[in-house]
Design a binder for these strands. Structure first.
Length: 842
RNA sequence: GCCCCUGUGGCGGAAUUGGUAGACGCGCUCGACUCAAAAUCGAGUUUCUUUGAAGUGCCGGUUCGAGUCCGGCCAGGGGUACCA
C-alpha cells in the first residue's frame, strides 16, 4: 500500500516549509560540545550582509551543507555555524547614498539574508549566530587586541593612504578609479597618517613553515601564500656617499654588484627628504611622486621616474662613484628603502637606465664567452659572472655567497633575510568598524582602555551628509578622560580593518561565553576546522590574517591551536556579465534584472536605451552583476536549486551563471519522487547487477562527497537512478530506491524527508545513517580491454578480470580488425597493461 | 608590472592521474502517448570529403601511447596588502 502523496507531483513549497519547521523543532543541527561522538567542524566563509543572498552564497553554503549532513550521517557530532561579517564600507556607502543608518541597513540585510538561507534548508546551528557589528562580538575583539598590545604585537607608525583632496577623505583602493576619487573625480594623492599595525612579520618564518603542514590545502593557495610571504636571502650593505653620509641598500642579487650603475632611494627616504630640504627641484619631484594611489599594481605599472640628487655613492669594490637618484619605483616599506640598481639584470632598473641614459652592463652570461653579448632587455636568469672582477667565472649562487663573505669581512654589510610580507596595517578612518580601544592623552601618550570599560561602543547619532570619518566629527564621543591621569583626553577614532573581525570568528562559533571571547578548552573540542570552504579570492589576505591571528592568540596563551583550518576548499566564483553606463568620471552599474538582454546588445528596461556590456567577472555588489536566488526557489523549490548548484560544474571552477539547467533539476526532483513511489513492499527476488551498481554507487558517492567533487557524485546518482528505473520490481530494486533516497538526502533534504516519511521509515532522514557498503559487491568480474595498433584504437575485448598478459596478447593479435590494420607487418613489440589495453607496435 | 589559476562537442563538464576522449546533465532533432498541449517515455546528437580520417586554445618536444608530462606562446579569470 503506497502512500497517497505519491499519486501527485512533489509539492516543493509545502515540503520545504514542513521539514524546515520539523528540523527547527527537533533542534537537530545544534552542535553539542559535550557529545561523546567524534567532532567535525564544517565551516563556510561567513557572508557580508550586502542585502540579499546571491548565487555565489548559495553555491558555497550548499557545498558545506552537503558535507555537514553527510558527516552527521557518518556518525559525527557536527558543528556547522553561520554568522555575518557585518562591518564594512557598503553600509557607509548606503548611509551616504540613501540616508539610512549603517546599523539599521546592516541588520535589515541580515534579517533578509537569514530568511533566504532558511528557505534553502541549510543544516545550520543558528543558536551560535554571530554578527561582528554586535558589541557583544566586537567588545571581545577589543579585549583580544589589548592582549596583543600587551604582548608587544601592536604598534603605531606612519603609513600612506589614498587621499582625496576634494572630499578631504581617505579612499579605499577600490574607490580609486584611474587615479581619481570615485565621487569627486579628483586626482588622488598619497598622504601619510599615523596608523595602527599588527606585527605579522614576527610570525613570517612560522607562517611559512606552517604551510608545509597544511596537507589539506590546495597547492595553489600554499604557493600563493609562500610567494606573498616572500622570504629572500640577500645582502644589506652601505655605500659611502660623496657628501660624507652613508646609505644602506638591500639587494637579493649581490652576485650582480659589479653591474650596479646607480643607486636609487624611495621618495620618502630620509636621504631624499634631506636633499629636498635644500633643493626645491627635488622637493617638487617628491611632491610629484605623491600623486596617484598606493596600490602595488599602480606603483609597478606607473612610468619610472627619477631625480638625480647629484650625490655620488662609492662602489665598495670598484671605488667608482655611482649617481644617487630619488626614484618613484623604490618602496620605503621593503628592505631599506634604497637599492643598488643593476639595469642588465632587473627590468625596472633597465627601463630606468634606458630613460635616463645610464650604463647597462652585462655581468651574468650563459657562458664566459658571451660576456659582451648585447642586452636588449634585462636578463634575470641563471648563469656565470662576467665583467665582475674577482667574481668572473663563478656561478650565480657561488657569487652571492662570495660577495656576502667579502662584504662582511670588510665590515660594510652583512647577509640578511628579508621578507616581502609587511606588517598588517589595521587602521581605518571609518565609522562602521570595531573602535580601536585606545585613548590619546597629552600627559600619558597612548593609553589602552581598561578592560572593565569594554566594549568601546560606536555612537549611534552620526552624520553621513559630509565625507570623512563621522567618529572624528562627532560632538562628544571622542572626548573622554584619560584612564591613567584623569586629564581631558581623546579617543582613538580609527576603527579596525574588517579582516580582524574575520580572523577569529571561527573561534567564537566554537565557544561563546558572555564574559570572555571564548573558552580555551571548548575551542579545543572543535578546532581545527575540519573543512573550510570559501572563495579563491580569499586565498591570501583573509586566510593569512586568520592564520596569523590564531598564532598571535596562541602566543599570548589564549588558544592551543596553531593552524585554524585543517583542510581548505576554494570554490570557484559565480560569474556574470556586467552592465554599465558612463556618468562623467563615474561608472554606473545595473543589475541583470534591470537589463533586457534578449537582442544582440543590451538595453535598460526602464528607458530602452543601450547599456555597455562588460566582461564576465565575479559577481559583486559594487558591479551589480548579481542574480537573486529567491525567484528560482519560489519556482522550483530549494532542492532543485541545491541540486543545480552541485551538478555539472566542478566546484573549484568558476561557474558562469545561466538560467538553463535549473528546469532539468526541477524535472529530476519529480523523477525521483515518482521512483520513490514505485517502492513495492510486496516485491521479492534479487537482481545481482543492480545490487552491484547500488553498492558501487554508494562507495563512489561517499568518495566524491569527501573530495567535494559533487558534480561527480551527481553523475553517479543519475546513473543509478536510470538503472533502477529500468529494473523490474524486486527486493533489490526496493533497496536501490531506499539507497538513492539516502544518497540524495544531504543534497535534496526536503525531498528526502518527504519520501522517508511517505515510505513510513520513521524519524528524520537528517538523523539517519549512511548506507553500508559490502566490499564484495564492488568488484567487477569482467573488464573491457582496448586493443591498439601503433597507439590507435582498433578493437575492444571483453574478458575476465585479471586475465594473464600472454592470453590478452594472443586475443589481441587474433582480432580481425587488428590484423586488417597491421596488414601483415611484423610485430616488433607488444605493450600489455592488464585489464586495460594491448598496444601492438609494428 | 608581479604571483596564482583556467582553456575538451551547441553549452556545463567526465576521463580510474601517461592507457578506449566526450561519462552524466542541459539544449536540440526525430519518434511514441494525446483532439491538442503540458508532463512522461524511447532513439539520436564532436567534426569531416565516412571501408576511413581528424580532433582536448596555439607551436614544438618526450613516449609504444599525451587532454594528462616538458619547453615556448595566446586568451580569459583571481589576488596585488583600505572591496569582502
Amino acid at each position: 500500500m503506497t502512500d497517497q502523496r505519491f499519486d501527485v507531483r512533489f509539492d516543493a513549497g509545502q515540503a520545504d516549509a514542513r521539514w524546515q519547521a520539523a528540523w527547527d523543532e527537533a533542534r537537530c543541527f545544534e552542535a553539542d560540545s559535550a557529545s561523546p561522538k567524534p567532532k567535525s567542524y564544517v565551516l563556510e566563509m561567513f557572508p557580508y550582509p550586502s542585502g540579499r543572498i546571491h548565487i555565489g552564497h548559495v553555491r558555497n553554503y550548499t557545498m558545506g551543507d552537503v558535507l555537514a549532513r553527510y558527516k552527521a550521517m557518518r556518525g559525527f557530532e557536527v558543528l556547522h555555524p553561520m554568522g555575518w561579517d557585518a562591518f564594512g564600507m557598503p553600509a557607509e556607502n548606503a548611509a551616504m547614498e540613501k540616508g539610512v543608518h549603517p546599523a539599521g541597513w546592516t541588520y535589515e540585510n541580515i534579517a533578509t539574508m537569514k530568511r533566504q538561507l532558511k528557505q534553502l534548508g541549510f543544516a545550520l546551528d543558528w543558536s551560535r549566530e554571530i554578527a561582528t557589528c554586535d558589541p557583544a562580538y566586537y567588545g571581545h575583539e577589543q579585549a583580544l587586541f589589548l592582549d596583543l598590545y600587551a604582548a608587544g604585537l601592536v604598534y603605531r607608525r606612519e603609513s600612506a593612504v589614498n587621499w582625496d583632496p576634494v572630499d578631504q577623505t581617505v579612499l579605499a583602493n577600490e574607490q580609486v578609479v584611474d587615479g581619481r576619487g570615485w565621487r569627486s573625480g579628483a586626482l588622488v594623492e598619497k598622504r601619510k597618517l599615523n596608523q595602527w599595525f599588527l606585527k605579522i612579520t614576527q610570525f613570517a618564518e612560522d607562517l611559512l613553515a606552517g604551510l608545509g603542514t597544511l596537507d589539506g590545502w590546495p597547492d595553489k593557495v600554499r604557493t600563493m601564500q609562500e610567494n606573498w610571504i616572500g622570504k629572500s636571502q640577500g645582502l644589506q650593505f652601505a655605500f659611502d656617499l660623496s657628501n660624507g653620509e652613508i646609505v644602506e641598500v638591500y639587494t637579493t642579487r649581490p652576485d650582480t654588484i659589479f653591474g650596479a650603475s646607480f643607486v636609487a632611494v624611495a621618495p620618502d627616504h630620509p636621504l631624499a627628504q634631506g636633499v629636498a630640504a635644500s633643493n626645491c627641484e627635488a622637493a617638487h619631484f617628491i611632491a610629484q611622486c605623491k600623486q596617484g594611489g598606493t596600490t602595488a599594481a599602480e606603483l609597478e605599472t606607473a612610468e619610472k621616474l627619477g631625480f638625480d640628487t647629484g650625490i655620488g655613492a662609492r662602489h665598495p669594490f670598484t671605488g667608482e662613484y655611482l649617481p644617487v637618484y630619488i626614484a618613484n619605483f623604490v618602496l620605503m616599506e621593503y628592505g631599506t628603502g634604497a637599492i643598488m640598481a643593476v639595469p642588465g639584470h632587473d627590468q625596472r632598473d633597465f627601463d630606468f637606465a634606458t630613460k635616463y641614459g645610464l650604463p647597462i652592463v652585462r655581468v651574468i652570461a650563459a657562458e664566459p664567452s658571451a660576456a659582451d653579448a648585447p642586452l636588449t632587455e634585462a636578463e634575470a636568469g641563471d648563469g656565470v659572472c662576467v665583467n665582475s672582477g674577482f667574481l668572473d667565472g663563478m656561478a650565480v649562487a657561488e657569487a652571492k655567497v662570495e660577495v656576502i663573505r667579502r662584504t662582511e669581512a670588510d665590515g660594510c654589510g652583512a647577509g640578511k633575510t628579508v621578507w616581502r610580507l609587511r606588517d598588517w596595517g589595521v587602521s581605518r578612518q571609518r565609522y562602521w568598524g570595531t573602535p580601536i580601544p585606545f585613548i590619546h592623552c597629552e600627559n600619558c601618550g597612548v593609553v589602552p582602555v581598561p578592560k572593565d570599560q569594554l566594549p568601546v561602543v560606536l555612537p549611534e547619532d552620526v552624520d553621513f551628509s559630509v565625507p570623512g570619518n563621522p567618529l572624528e566629527r562627532h560632538a562628544t564621543w571622542k572626548h573622554v578622560d584619560c584612564p591613567q591621569c584623569g586629564a581631558a583626553a581623546r579617543r582613538e577614532t580609527d576603527t579596525l580593518d574588517t579582516f580582524v573581525n574575520s580572523s577569529w570568528y571561527f573561534l567564537r562559533f566554537a565557544s561563546q561565553p558572555a564574559d570572555k571571547p571564548f573558552d580555551m578548552a571548548e575551542v579545543a573540542q572543535w578546532l581545527p576546522v575540519e573543512q573550510y570552504i570559501g572563495g579563491i579570492e580569499h586565498a591570501i589576505l583573509h586566510l593569512l590574517y586568520a592564520r596569523f591571528w590564531t598564532r598571535a592568540l596562541a602566543h599570548v596563551g589564549a588558544v592551543d591551536v596553531k593552524e585554524p583550518f585543517a583542510s581548505l576548499f576554494t570554490q570557484g566564483m559565480v560569474t556574470h556579465e556586467t552592465y554599465s553606463r558612463k556618468d562623467g568620471p563615474r561608472e554606473i552599474y545595473f543589475t541583470p534584472g534591470e537589463v533586457d538582454r534578449s537582442g544582440t546588445g543590451a538595453t535598460l528596461k526602464s528607458d530602452g536605451q543601450p547599456v555597455q556590456i562588460g566582461k564576465v567577472i565575479k559577481m559583486s555588489k559594487s558591479k551589480k552583476n548579481v542574480v537573486d536566488p529567491e525567484d528560482i526557489i519560489a519556482d522550483y523549490g530549494a532542492d532543485a536549486v541545491r541540486w543545480f548548484m552541485l551538478s555539472d560544474s566542478p566546484p573549484e571552477r568558476d561557474l558562469p551563471w545561466s538560467e538553463a539547467g535549473i528546469e532539468g533539476c526541477g524535472r529530476f526532483v519529480q523523477r525521483l519522487w515518482r521512483l520513490f513511489g514505485q517502492f513495492d513492499g510486496s516485491a521479492t527476488g534479487d537482481n545481482t547487477a543492480l545490487a552491484r551498481k547500488t553498492h558501487q554507487t554508494v562507495a563512489a558517492v561517499a568518495t566524491d562527497i569527501e573530495a567535494l567533487s559533487f558534480n561527480k557524485a551527481v553523475a553517479r546518482i543519475y546513473e543509478l537512478t536510470s538503472a533502477t528505473e529500468k529494473a523490474a520490481p524486486s527486493a533489490t530494486r526496493n533497496e536501490a530506491i531506499r539507497t538513492i533516497l539516502l544518497l540524495v538526502s544531504p543534497m535534496m533534504p526536503h525531498l528526502a524527508e518527504e519520501g522517508w516519511d511517505a515510505l513510513g521509515e520513521g524519524g528524520l532522514v537528517a538523523e539517519a545513517a549512511w548506507p553500508e557498503v559490502d566490499p564484495a559487491m564492488l568488484v567487477e568480474d569482467e573488464v573491457t580491454v582496448a586493443v591498439q595498433h601503433m597507439g590507435k584504437l582498433r578493437d575492444t575485448l571483453t574478458v575476465a578480470k585479471g586475465l594473464p598478459k600472454d592470453q590478452l596478447e594472443a586475443l589481441a593479435l587474433a582480432s580481425e580488425r587488428v590484423q586488417r590494420s597491421m596488414d601483415g607487418a611484423e610485430v616488433r613489440k607488444v605493450i600489455v597493461v592488464p585489464d586495460r589495453l594491448v598496444n601492438i607496435v609494428t
